[in-house]
């Protein structure tokens, strides 16, 4: 630790924090102004708050549908990825499977691949190949839940592996000796001990799925469109409804902020594949 006037540091970090927070504050300012006031001289201060944009968003049936889709898809995806990731990590950590370290490394390459490259093949596969009779995965919630696994499942495996490796093997061996079935061992011995790690994984996968835009924008038409795609629909070349756009952005941001307050300490580790403990 170097010496120096601590209040200078406080001043410096206050300025940095203002730079960080101001764009978010400005988003809020735009969202609570009536359309006519937007184009008069932009003012930093709020004189009165106008909630109509939020009411309009909530009254819009299409956007309400998008919100439900977003909730269903990200919750379904988070539960699926955390469950499968838990099973996979249990297998990787407790069984002597041939080539398991290669498998572990291979899963993470799935997350590194640029999603833009997969737009076209996923679109073609969903519409033409992955279909049973009349049912195709294109533009369905279940299809999006499965597709989001390509980036969230590797993430879940990557973050859960240390948790599972950290639970002593002797515990499940003792349970097996007592005659417990594998299912009982997983659900009653390992699961309670892994709960904190599982909670963090669940929350972070949820927010990654909630935040996703590119795949949702290209692989859905109407039935499974999410809130992030709804946001881009409000930006048109002819004239953007800025207030509504800001209000949708705030709605999209709120869950992320709640999540942020819950798992703030784990975000950096999550974003760097655990390379940094944050």
């Amino acid at each position: 630790m170097r010496k120096g006037n601590p209040w200078l540091s406080v001043l410096f970090w206050t300025l940095i924090s203002l730079a960080t927070l101001f764009p978010i504050y400005w988003l809020f300012v735009i969202s609570v102004k009536p359309a006519v006031e937007l184009f008069s001289t932009p003012s930093i201060w709020l004189t009165e708050i106008y909630w109509q944009n939020y009411v309009d968003v909530l009254n819009n049936r299409t956007l309400r549908g998008y919100m439900v889709n977003s909730l269903v898809i990200s919750s379904g995806n988070a539960v699926l990825c955390t469950t499968l990731g838990f099973f996979a990590c249990y297998a990787l950590s407790r069984f002597d499977l041939g080539g398991k370290e290669s498998i572990f490394f291979w899963t993470i390459t799935n997350r590194m691949a640029p999603p833009a490259v997969f737009l076209l093949p996923l679109f073609l596969l969903l519409t033409q190949v992955y279909r049973v009779g009349d049912f195709s995965l294109a533009d369905t919630r279940i299809g999006m839940i499965l597709i989001y696994c390509t980036f969230n499942l590797p993430f879940a495996i990557w973050t859960l592996r240390p948790t599972l490796d950290g639970i002593p093997k002797e515990l499940d061996e003792a349970a097996y000796v007592d005659g417990a079935s594998p299912w009982k061992v997983i659900t009653e011995v390992v699961f309670p001990l892994a709960r904190p790690g599982l909670a963090v994984t669940l929350i972070l996968t949820w927010v990654f799925a909630w935040n996703e835009y590119l795949l949702a924008a290209t692989l859905t038409n109407f039935n499974a469109r999410t809130l992030t795609t709804g946001l881009s629909e409000y930006v048109t070349t002819t004239g953007t409804n800025w207030g509504i756009m800001a209000a949708i952005s705030v709605f999209t941001l709120i869950p992320a902020l709640i999540v942020f307050s819950l798992v703030q300490r784990h975000i950096v580790a999550g974003l760097t594949f655990g390379a940094v403990k944050g």
Binding site: T20, V207, W210, N211, E212, Y213, T228, L231, S232, S249, T252, L253, A256, L257, V259, F260, I267, V268, L271
Partner: peptide
Amino acid sequence: PLIMAPII
């Protein structure tokens, strides 16, 4: 900012 969706 790290937790914010890129689109936001």
